[in-house]
Amino acid sequence: MLVLLSGCEKKVGGQVVAVVNGEEITQQQLNAELNGAQLQPGADKKAIMAQLLQRVVDRTLLVQQAKADGLDQSPAYLEQARRQQESLLVNMLAGKMAKNISLPDNSAVSNFIAGNPTMFAGRKRYMLDQIVFPQPTDMTVIKDLQPAHSLEAIAQILTAKGIQFQRGNGQVDSGMLPPDVASRIAALPAGEPFLIPDNGRLVASVIKSAEAVATPEDQAKPAALNVLRQQALAEAMRKQVAKSRSTAKIEYQPGFAPPAGVKPGAPAAGAAPKA
């Protein structure tokens, strides 16, 4: 038995750059850490690798302690691990599909630039007065906000409903918004508020001032090309979902099926407030 155990002892060498309590750290793991690091030109790669290795060693020790405490078997960990694995697989599928997407020609790129001025020639940066509040679960609140034509009116409605909010300033670049949303914002009367969802919150904004930040010509074509590729990938993913749904067997517990008339995968009602 002693002979067998000694034969299983893990040692450094070859692709194994360190062993922590019997757990190997490989050159491949270290290279992955290096790929995620931002290196300055002329940096000592060997010295940085040594520093990164110590970071991996420290993380390995913490992971070993977490496992010793049984955290890797907790429901919270298992659920988060499942979600991260699913996200990784979806991202890898998107990367695979992106390789098969053909690049748009110069004509398509030029037409896209001309047809989306809020992203290019007419791009603007807006300085905003804002009210931020949690996304309400009762969507009638959104309907009640529709007639409001000022931030003060929105504040009064939220106060009357007992919804807490914060006032502040912000800015938004029209080039970072979906073109239809940017066009609707640009067409608003002076002082008219608009609502944009933001990670579980709603942001009501009024434009205080605007400045032109037109995209330089040498940057416009690469930016347009990237957007067109992203749109093509999104459409390819949508088609893949539709194809998979057409052959999949999906069963719902009562009360969880999509409402009648609602296309699966479409945004829920009230998910796109006025802009």
Rank of each mutant, 00 (worst) to 15 (best):
D69A: 14
D69W: 13
G70V: 01
L71N: 12
L71A: 13
L71M: 11
D72Q: 13
D72C: 13
D72I: 09
D72Y: 12
Q73M: 04
S74K: 08
S74V: 02
S74C: 00
S74M: 06
P75N: 07
P75T: 11
P75R: 02
A76P: 12
A76L: 15
A76T: 12
Y77Q: 02
Y77F: 14
Y77L: 07
Y77R: 02
Y77M: 04
L78R: 13
E79T: 09
E79C: 04
E79H: 11
E79I: 08
E79Q: 14
Q80D: 06
Q80G: 04
A81P: 03
R82K: 11
R82A: 07
R82M: 03
R83C: 02
R83M: 07
R83N: 06
R83H: 09
Q84F: 03
Q84I: 00
Q84A: 05
Q85Y: 07
E86Q: 12
S87P: 00
S87Q: 08
V90G: 02
V90S: 07
V90P: 04
V90Y: 07
V90L: 11
N91R: 10
N91T: 10
N91I: 01
M92H: 04
M92E: 13
M92I: 08
L93E: 06
A94N: 14
A94M: 14
A94E: 15
G95F: 03
K96G: 00
K96D: 01
K96L: 06
M97L: 09
M97T: 05
M97Q: 01
A98P: 05
A98V: 10
A98I: 09
A98Q: 06
K99N: 10
K99G: 12
I101E: 00
I101S: 00
I101N: 00
I101V: 00
S102C: 08
S102P: 12
S102G: 13
S102A: 15
S102Y: 03
S102W: 02
L103N: 15
L103S: 14
L103T: 14
P104G: 01
P104N: 03
P104F: 01
P104W: 01
D105I: 03
D105H: 04
D105Y: 00
D105T: 02
N106P: 11
N106L: 09
N106K: 15
S107A: 13
A108D: 11
A108F: 06
A108P: 12
A108R: 09
A108G: 12
A108C: 10
V109F: 00
S110P: 11
N111H: 05
F112K: 05
F112R: 07
I113D: 13
I113R: 12
A114P: 06
A114N: 11
G115T: 06
G115M: 00
G115F: 00
G115Q: 08
N116D: 03
P117E: 10
P117W: 07
P117G: 06
P117M: 08
T118R: 10
T118P: 14
T118F: 04
T118M: 13
M119Q: 15
M119T: 15
M119A: 15
F120H: 06
F120I: 05
F120S: 06
A121V: 13
R123Q: 10
R123P: 05
